[in-house]
């Protein structure tokens, strides 16, 4: 694991460096794909229930719908992973993300209220964690950086905390 890239204040950092990218691929994609697959399963169950209860839905149709959903989910997860970038710039945390709508967000360190490290159930199984940065803003007040290893997440949290304190974290609200 190379952790030093998160501590470095400058330079674009993708979700992982090249070496552990493959490693992360095998995990991050399932991580974001899991919820999507769950949706596919729910959809399948709903269709089966509909089939039993109201009108007949051909089994092939169910199969096709589920397969399509799964394909979409996988494509979405891959795109999401490819599009994800974050960077610690000299005054702000900069993020680029999104598939349908690409969002470039800058969170000035001065505005960071607190930083969380989160481990969701799926993430825990895969050995991943996320860092969530909160601001006092009203919309998009929490910015999430998913798909980090627990160690990296902790060191990133630490770095952000230090940067927030360094930038004289007085509040403006």
């Amino acid at each position: 694991m190379t952790d030093d890239d998160t501590v470095r204040p400058l330079g674009t950092v993708a979700l992982s460096t090249w070496i552990d990218r493959i490693w992360a691929w095998s995990r991050f994609i399932p991580a974001s794909g899991c919820s999507g697959s769950l949706a596919a399963v729910v959809l399948a169950v709903a269709l089966v229930v509909l089939d039993q209860w109201r009108l007949t839905v051909p089994t092939v149709a169910i199969g096709i719908v589920v397969a399509l959903t799964l394909a979409l989910v996988v494509a979405y997860a891959v795109r999401r992973y490819q599009g994800w970038r974050f960077e610690l710039q000299d005054d702000a945390l900069y993020l680029e993300r999104g598939v349908v709508t690409v969002v470039e967000t800058a969170v000035p360190f001065v505005r960071v209220q607190h930083v969380d490290t989160q481990f969701g159930p799926i993430e825990r199984v895969l050995g991943l964690s996320s860092v969530v940065v909160y601001t006092a803003g009203s919309r998009n007040a929490d910015v999430r950086i998913p798909g980090l290893t627990p160690d990296r997440a902790r060191s990133l949290q630490e770095t952000l905390r230090e940067l927030a304190i360094e930038s004289e974290a007085e509040d403006a609200v």
Partner: peptide, 11 residues
Amino acid sequence: RIQTVATRRSV
């Protein structure tokens, strides 16, 4: 008063 700035681009 700026908290965050974001540039959004839809498809």
